[in-house]
């Protein structure tokens, strides 16, 4: 346990010095600042006021940026170290594979989740200072969604990172995965449905399996279940499962998915040659 904390702590420090982390901070911090400057918290559009609207825009941005950021920065944590023989050296000390692997994962989790969450908190605080009422429910649920999304993609990234032996392959496959998940958001699903090639239940299943789609549906449902921008698949999900069940699923499924993927990566690390 002590070694797990040690690995996590050192990985965090290393991340904080790296360029990608700086970009990450600037992107999320900068976005929030941009929202403030453009007055998004004060305006009233489509019946949404202040902070709710801020959260809504933030959600759309998070869907696109967060997964790819987590994937490209994390997917190399095992594969690149293996290629450069850093792994050989770091693992020549009396430390278990579990402590190393889970330590790295905990470190990455803190590093990726904290900035997004703090930007969110910053937005809320700023809005509150402006006198807007704080939307506690959406805020807390949204925080949970972001956490779930982080866990899902971290788990997937660590799995790819141990599965694939070269760093380039790891980057390539995570990019393909990201595109595929994004493409299967509502728009593509509607297209398939309209062509009647695929059955409705298949499409609904695909939507339910895609952590990005879930995140989007869950997050937007926080504000208004009737929202037209959600698209028919999202609307159908909401209609079929009801709000509480869908919200719970949106939190627990990605965490489960990430957990299973991470565990598969750990299993691979133990079962195969380390170098």
């Amino acid at each position: 346990m002590k070694n797990l904390a040690l690995v996590a702590w050192l990985d965090m420090r290393e991340s904080m010095r790296s360029r990608w982390f700086l970009v990450y901070l600037v992107v999320f911090g900068g976005l929030m600042a941009l929202f403030f400057v453009t007055g998004i918290t004060d305006s009233v559009v489509m019946g949404f006021t202040g902070l709710s609207r801020l959260l809504l825009v933030y959600i759309q941005v998070t869907i696109v940026i967060l997964p790819i950021f987590i994937l490209i920065t994390t997917v190399k944590s095992i594969s690149a170290d293996r290629e450069s023989a850093i792994l050989e050296y770091m693992l020549s000390f009396p430390i278990s594979l579990g402590e190393y692997y889970w330590g790295k994962m905990v470190g990455r989790f803190v590093i990726t989740f904290t900035p997004v969450f703090l930007a969110l908190v910053g937005g809320i605080v700023w809005g509150a200072i402006q006198g807007a009422p704080i939307p506690w429910g959406p805020f807390l649920l949204y925080g949970a969604f972001v956490l779930a999304l982080c866990v899902a993609f971290l788990g997937i990234a660590f799995c790819i990172s141990t599965l694939v032996k070269s760093h380039d392959m790891a980057l390539g496959s995570s990019f393909v995965l990201w595109i595929a998940l994004l493409a299967f958001l509502d728009v593509a699903l509607i297209g398939l449905m309209l062509q009647n090639r695929w059955s409705d239940s298949l499409i609904i299943t695909l939507a339910l399996l895609n952590p990005l789609e879930l995140f989007r549906v869950g997050a937007i449902a926080l504000f208004d279940p009737e929202l037209s921008v959600m698209g028919p698949v999202a609307y159908f999900l909401l209609d079929t499962f009801g709000r509480p069940l869908l919200l719970a699923y949106t939190i627990f499924y990605p965490i489960l998915l990430g957990g299973v993927a991470a565990w598969a990566g750990y299993w691979l690390l133990r079962k195969r040659d380390l170098l």
């Binding site: 070694n3 690995v7 050192l10 420090r13 010095r17 450069s84 023989a85 850093i86 050989e88 050296y89």
Partner: peptide
Amino acid sequence: PPIRLLVSELIEYVAR
């Protein structure tokens, strides 16, 4: 290997 940890951090890792 091209370890990115600082010398102080590497020594901390080893020592602990």
